[in-house]
């Protein structure tokens, strides 16, 4: 019984993973990302060594947090922070679209109806989808990290040699942190897709709520004139991305503010990560309940 259950789970997860891998949308979005990121990296590379150029310094700082004269530890923390930022901003949008496709797209082409008529528990379907999504996002993040690292080696040059071991060993932790955050977006999008039967409206709702979430820091900034700085800090700390970015960059792009010891940063700010984990668990529980109790077809 347990073996069959695991077999079903494995099959669904594998199907989900392969579906995402073969999805034209992932290919299109990845291509757009690669083109824009390459232009970005090329531009920074072309200007980084011209320290006399204000534009060069500004570009390198605004895009990747790079400033001239960084210590080894500063450079390490900058690279880790910028990678995390890229994974969160780009991975967030991918995860949101994946959550939508996992339910709405399958509902539209009746694949979901076929699946729930099979001798499968509904929670196995959700578990399989979550597992497939985690596997896909992890592979995707490894790919993005590889592209980013190659670009940074080209930009930073010899200075990279002294930190390469510490940098490479910290990548898994950066990926895990980013995964934790983007899975919140995935689960959120999954829930909206389960509740809203109209697929188009479901994606609009996902997109709108994502835009609103991105505007939370701006709104909080405006509200601080009434309720003080503490309210601003409290409001932005409920936003999934800032829960990770506050410990790393103090949310102001100050990537070099810690000494590159990422494990220590995670341990000292463990409440942020616990809070993020709680968000994820709550959202997954809601998606279980919704998927088990709601008429899907």
């Amino acid at each position: 019984m347990f073996g069959a259950l695991m077999g079903n789970l494995w099959n669904i997860a594998r199907k989900e993973f392969v579906d995402f891998m073969e999805s034209r949308f992932i290919i299109i979005v990845t291509l757009i990302f690669l083109i824009t990121f390459s232009i970005n990296a090329y531009s920074v590379n072309a200007n980084y060594y011209t320290h006399g150029s204000a534009i060069g310094s500004l570009l390198a700082y605004s895009r990747f947090g790079l400033i001239s004269g960084l210590s080894q530890q500063g450079l390490l923390s900058t690279l880790q922070g910028a990678l995390c930022n890229i994974l969160l901003s780009f991975g967030g949008i991918i995860a949101l679209l994946m959550g939508y496709l996992a339910i709405s797209n399958e509902r539209r082409n009746n694949a979901l109806t076929t699946m729930i008529t099979k001798p499968l528990f509904r929670d196995t379907i959700i578990n399989g989808k979550l597992l497939g999504a985690v596997a896909f996002l992890a592979s995707f993040f490894i790919f993005i990290s590889a592209v980013y690292t190659l670009c940074m080696i080209l930009i930073v040059g010899d200075a990279f040699n002294s930190i390469i071991y510490a940098y490479l060993t910290s990548i898994p932790l950066v990926i895990i942190m980013a995964l934790l955050c983007v899975m919140v977006y995935y689960s959120y999008s999954l829930i909206i897709s389960i509740f809203v039967k109209n697929g188009t409206l479901a994606l609009f709702m996902c997109a709108l709520s994502w835009l609103i979430l991105r505007e939370v820091p701006n709104i909080s900034w405006n509200l601080r004139v009434f309720f003080g700085q503490s309210v601003y800090q409290s409001l932005i700390s409920i936003f999934p991305e800032t829960l990770i970015m506050i410990p790393i960059t103090n949310y102001v792009g100050d990537y070099a503010r810690y000494n590159g010891d990422l494990i220590n940063v995670v341990l000292t700010n463990s409440t942020n990560f616990v809070e993020l984990g709680v968000y994820l668990i709550i959202l997954i529980i809601i998606s279980y309940i919704a998927f088990l109790r709601r008429d899907i077809s």
Binding site: R24, F25, I28, V29, I32, T36, F37, I39, N40, Y42, S43, S62, R63, S89, I93, L97, Y100, L101, S104, N105, R108, G199, T200, L203, A207, L211, R214
Partner: peptide
Amino acid sequence: DLSLALVASFSYLYFGLVENVYFSDL
């Protein structure tokens, strides 16, 4: 395909408006 159109439009919104910084290099 509706899904593809939705995703392409949303990507346009993301790269064109929200993350438009990439275009400034041009």
